[in-house]
């Protein structure tokens, strides 16, 4: 499937608006200053995405929010396990008791995912002048293939936004992935065509 530079530019703009809002929101909630940016966006088929990451067996942490409306799909915030641990540690410190680590990690990442994914999907919805219904965010761990298959079985295309978190002079890498079908993508292209 051919995706034009113009379309990539529009995705970048929609996602940047959402990320900008999410950054401001997270700064209000968290006691630590956090900056977000999205240096690169790509649209890939599922096999190409899995091939490109070259991390078939690595376990990732992800927050998933399903959506339905003009088209169905799911949005993910994905971190390597190392990045997830760094992010949580930077935000809540090292004072967490051992028996609380899992709950704090999933709770913190879920809330960050909730704000970030709502900001990104909400910006897309507002720009397209449409409405999505969301599912409750869910924290998951697994290989990329497992995470995507568990979340939205019909995934054929992914919009991948590399996302950098800057916290306390640390750079933590993550990804926002919007999972959809080819048909969903075509519906979104048409909706974008109406507003530009």
């Amino acid at each position: 499937m051919q995706i034009s530079d113009r379309e990539i530019e529009i995705f970048q703009e929609m996602i940047n608006i959402g990320i900008g809002r999410a950054g401001a929101t997270l700064n209000q909630i968290l006691s630590t200053h956090i900056e977000l940016n999205v240096p690169h966006i790509s649209v890939l088929s599922l096999p190409d995405y899995l091939k490109q990451t070259k991390k078939e067996n690595e376990i990732f942490s992800a927050v998933e929010m399903g959506f339905d409306g003009p088209f169905p799909g799911a949005a993910h915030l994905i971190f390597s396990n190392k990045s997830a641990a760094q992010l949580v540690s930077a935000l809540v410190g090292d004072e967490v008791k051992n028996d609380e680590i899992d709950e704090i990690k999933s709770g913190t990442l879920s809330e960050i995912g909730n704000i970030l994914l709502n900001s990104v999907m909400g910006s897309i919805s507002n720009i397209l002048q449409d409405h999505f219904n969301y599912s409750v965010v869910e924290y998951m761990e697994g290989t990329l293939k497992n995470l995507i298959e568990r979340s939205f079985r019909e995934t054929t295309l992914l919009i991948i936004a590399e996302t950098n978190f800057y916290i306390q002079e640390m750079e933590i890498d993550g990804q926002i992935a919007i999972l959809m079908t080819l048909k969903s993508f075509e519906i979104m292209e048409k909706a974008i065509g109406k507003i530009i």
């Binding site: 809002r21 929101t25 209000q28 909630i29 909730n114 704000i115 709502n118 900001s119 909400g122 910006s123 919805s125 507002n126 449409d130 409405h131 999505f132 969301y134």
Partner: peptide, 24 residues
């Protein structure tokens, strides 16, 4: 709510609640 959609705000305010604010 973290939901920033204009449509959600409109729907919720139609219930007659005192206010709708985005988090935070």
């Amino acid at each position: 709510s973290a939901d920033i959609q204009d449509t959600t705000r409109k729907k919720i305010l139609s219930y007659g609640v005192a206010g709708f604010l985005n988090k935070p």
